[in-house]
Simulated scan of single mutants.
Amino acid sequence: MVISRKQESPKCDIFINKVKLKQTEKFKYLGTIISNNGKTNREISARTAQAKINFQKMKTTMTNKHISIETRKRALQCYIEPVLMYGCEAWTISKQIQNKLEATEMWFLRRMLRIPWTAKKTNERVLNEANKRRSLVRTIRKGQATFLGHVMRRGKLEHLLTTGKF
């Protein structure tokens, strides 16, 4: 795979034992989708879908009104959000992606509070009802900053690539 910003990906021929390797547009490496345009839209969409599937598997617990909302929020933070945020340190988050992540966060809260999609409740009202503030994007940004700090302190190849000082 060749990672490039160009619309048309450059062709690259690599041979191993006289056998040409197939060039691909995307592949999964260590559970993360890597695409040839360097964007993370596919990865974030896949992570969002997987987190929603896991939420649905835990639906009886996550929507149970006999369990306090604080306990359910903690379960969300412990069991669902890590699935969503796996590999988030390497994500490129545009405003569109940020909106999608915030919508996903609200999707979880609305289901936990059993608020139907037809209810005309604003996100602020839902957040107040859950006694919560938006935290998903902030947590991702904090993880990215922490990772960047590790890269910058390490001083090896990653540091050279990040700073461009060869």
Rank of each mutant, 00 (worst) to 15 (best):
R133T: 14
I115M: 10
L160W: 00
I67T: 00
R47T: 03
G149S: 05
L30Y: 04
T92L: 02
T104Q: 04
T118F: 10
I44Q: 03
A145R: 05
F108Q: 05
L113Y: 08
R154N: 15
Q96T: 14
C12D: 12
L136S: 07
E89T: 15
Y29K: 01
F15Q: 12
I44P: 00
T61E: 04
M85F: 01
A49V: 05
Q98W: 02
K28L: 02
E70Q: 11
K73T: 00
K120F: 00
E129G: 06
N54C: 12
E158N: 11
K142N: 13
V83W: 00
V151G: 00
L84Y: 04
R42H: 10
Q7N: 08
I33T: 14
P10S: 01
I69N: 09
C88E: 07
T104G: 03
T63Q: 06
E129A: 12
K132A: 14
R72S: 08
T92C: 05
K121P: 03
R125E: 14
H66Q: 12
T60P: 05
A145W: 02
V137H: 06
T24A: 01
Q7M: 06
K65F: 05
E8L: 14
T162A: 15
H66S: 12
A130T: 03
A75I: 14
T122A: 12
G87R: 04
I53M: 06
K120E: 00
A145N: 08
Q56M: 13
A46Q: 06
L160D: 07
I140T: 08
S9E: 15
S94Q: 07
K156F: 04
I80L: 05
S94W: 04
T92K: 09
L160I: 11
K18I: 07
N54P: 02
K20E: 11
T139H: 07
S4N: 14
K121T: 01
I69K: 00
T40P: 01
A145E: 04
Q77A: 13
E43R: 02
Q50N: 07
L127F: 11
L84E: 05
R153E: 01
Q77V: 00
M85K: 09
N54I: 02
G164F: 08
E8T: 15
M62W: 05
A49D: 09
A49T: 10
M1K: 13
I44M: 05
S94D: 07
L160Q: 03
S135I: 12
R5D: 11
K18H: 07
W117R: 11
K156S: 13
K165T: 13
K100T: 10
R133E: 15
